[in-house]
């Protein structure tokens, strides 16, 4: 099976902490931080390292602060 690795980068200073991305993420990768950014919002952060790069978070992010990467590695064929 192919191995999918994703990564999100959130511009935390621009995040308004609306939490839409957290709900949109099927992997529960994201969570809300306990601290605030310069705007005074508790921003979204990556809580787990299980992102698949599906980009749902970025799609629903109203402020376009999420960048998403997705790397698909074909698994090397193994002898059965």
């Amino acid at each position: 099976m192919a191995k999918v690795q994703g990564e999100v980068i959130i511009d935390l200073e621009k995040c308004k902490g609306c939490e839409l991305c957290i709900i949109a993420c099927p992997e529960e990768t994201l969570a809300i931080a306990n601290i605030i950014n310069k705007k005074g919002y508790r921003y979204a952060i990556k809580a787990q390292d299980n992102c698949t790069g599906c980009a749902n978070c970025a799609l629903v992010c109203p402020d376009a602060v999420i960048t998403v990467y997705r790397k698909v590695e074909k698994a090397p064929k193994q002898a059965v």
């Binding site: 790069g53 799609l59 960048t67 998403v68 990467y69 790397k71």
Partner: peptide
């Protein structure tokens, strides 16, 4: 991972 070729959304 964070390489231009793997970018899916910006």
């Amino acid at each position: 991972i964070c390489l231009p070729e793997f970018l899916v959304y910006e």
